[in-house]
Amino acid sequence: MLHTFIALVDDKPGVLTRVASLFRRLSVNIVSLTVGESERDGVSRMTIVCEGAENAAHRIRASLYKLEVTREVDEVSRAEAVIRELCLIKVGAGPNSPHGVHSRTQIFELAQVFRARVVDLAPESIMLEMTGSASKIEGLLQVLRESSYEVLEVSRTGRMAMRRGHHTSKVLKALGTKTAAETPVAYPVRPEEDDLPNQFEEEEA
């Protein structure tokens, strides 16, 4: 099954190697890994999605926290967090493409339905930008391919995750830190779906 970890780590050289090396050591395949700045100075935030047995989560989490560069680790499931990914897709859309001169209007329509944005327009191609759950991105890609569009390039950021509600990590809770998260936050157990009905519903929760 897929596990999603959020790790707050020191923003220093070599930190990514330490985290990546840990997964290598445990023979756990990383599905996606995103790193970027967090709300704190000197602290990077990583979202790591990996494939592992159900009981592997505890050990991965404890091992992540064992790294001296790790400040906090949290594990989130789809129900309690917003998980998003950004994707850039370049699609062939010139007069010589399979759909010929109609390519562009059709891609525009598709983009609108999937809430993707057109961010670049060239004589032979269109670049789309899309944010959403991994399954939604895969949905758009599948429609493009099955409709015989030529997908020239795909670049995906990998997933980012953040707990819903006014909430800090479980780690802070375990520490006894009083946060606003102590007050229960009303949010549906099953999160509201992105407005678009999606046949490619992911089964990763």
């Binding site: 009981n55 505890h58 050990r59 404890a62 091992s63 926290y65 064992k66």
Partner: peptide, 8 residues
């Protein structure tokens, strides 16, 4: 003392 040893 090391949580990663539990159930290893």
């Amino acid at each position: 003392i090391d949580p990663s040893e539990i159930n290893k």
